[in-house]
Nucleic acid binder design. Structure first.
Lengths: 237, 237
DNA sequence: AAGTGGTCTAGACCACATT
DNA sequence: ATGTGGTCTAGACCACTTC
């Protein structure tokens, strides 16, 4: 493992375990260099990870300090804000799908724009309801170009599509651009998700990218309002 | 300006202007070092900014590539996902407040936890509706410790509280931890925001931190569902 | 004036992909 | 075998805070 990861893990642990407490000044970078037998750049990189996570604050001229977080907030921040699908997010729980549609169609105009492919291309058109512990939780409408993600079978979309892409096709998912908004459920969505007509839903529109830089997925996830939250750490420069 | 900012700005411009196009491989770091007369670490840092923004992708052993983004997505990604208040987010538009409450109270239990201050401390209790271009847009319930943010007057909370904190008090806002969720509007909220009873609202719970590491704000913003969206770029690793 | 973190360098070595 | 990006170093200089 890289040295900067080791160092940042070590410091994160000290914060989580309470060895470094809220508002405490932690050792100077200079001293950490000696302690970890690392160069300044390496220690700085380790600390910058913790700044981005929201655990510590650096002030030029003064030093580095533990943020004044309560326990709950430390926990929240610590379970990394990673990019995972429904299956991975609910690891250990029973996740299954009800497939509403699975076909190949000419790409709709909006999806063509989002996927940056030409009109007339073919895409998988997947529509499914995801159940977590037998509770309907989210409805997913997914478009995937058939030439990028070939050979999808019904069994692949019952489970984790990401697993199929990474483990079976050996492709690498690199990132996703997501827009979260809010609206009222349609009657059909309300029905499938076990909501009342007009109840709120959270809508996450997502474009997923492979490590080739190509968009492999344009999806719209409609979440039950009582089973949805996003956590964000915002930093000013 | 720092050299790595200059370099990343330059490359970003080339992408935005279309000089580097989707899926194109951009020059090697080695060559950029020569071109910009910079060291490898500096060029790498510049490129890593663009990776985090979602504009490019790096593959060890292969090179660096422009992500396959459509124009709209480039624009979206480019207008930085910064941390700003309602006033700054709607710069150029008319923003005003209707103040529903402005008082000093003993901190409620939840706020004490979030702000990590002891029960019995006093906080400002601010409740206001924000109007953008005379349309009610968001209701904000804000708690601020009086000893951190002293001397707030009615006029400060009609406008941007962040401006008061930074320009008048000369404090530095460092970051915020935000949780976004969805629920139904209460009748009172619906009334103030011009919604129907039970309409959806987006709720952003936020803890704001100064560069001292102290929480200076615990706020709950209730947004009209048709005037709310969050953009996120998620990266694996 | 002294000490902090921020930037930058020149060069070494490593992990990985392509040829 | 060659060449990519990733990590790491030792040390220089700068911006800023504190004394």
């Amino acid at each position: 493992m890289q040295k900067y990861v080791v160092i940042s893990n070590d410091i994160r642990n000290k914060i989580v375990k309470g060895e470094y407490v809220a508002n405490q000044q932690i050792p100077f970078e200079k001293d950490m260099c000696i302690h970890y037998n690392a160069s300044k750049m390496t220690v700085k990189k380790a600390l910058d990870i913790l700044v981005a996570e929201g655990l510590v604050i650096k002030r030029r001229g003064s030093g580095t300090f533990v943020k004044d977080l309560n326990l709950e907030e430390i926990e929240r921040v610590t379970m990394a804000n990673q990019f995972r699908g429904t299956t991975a997010l609910n690891a250990g729980k029973k996740v299954r799908s009800k497939i509403l549609n699975f076909s190949i169609v000419k790409v709709p105009e909006e999806a063509a724009k989002k996927l940056n492919i030409s009109l007339g291309s073919f895409v998988y058109d997947i529509y499914r309801v995801r159940y977590v512990e037998d509770e309907p939780t989210v409805m997913e409408k997914i478009y995937m170009p058939i030439d990028l993600i070939p050979n999808i079978k019904e069994k692949n979309i019952s489970g984790s599509i990401y697993d199929y892409i990474e483990k079976d096709l050996h492709l690498k998912i690199q990132s996703a651009h997501r827009t979260v908004s809010v609206r009222k459920a349609t009657d059909f969505e309300a029905d499938e998700l076990g909501l009342e007509k007009g109840d709120p839903v959270a809508v996450a529109e997502q474009i997923g990218y492979l490590d080739t830089g190509n968009a492999f997925e344009f999806s719209t996830s409609v979440h039950r309002y009582d089973k949805f939250a996003v956590e964000i750490v915002l930093t000013r420069n």
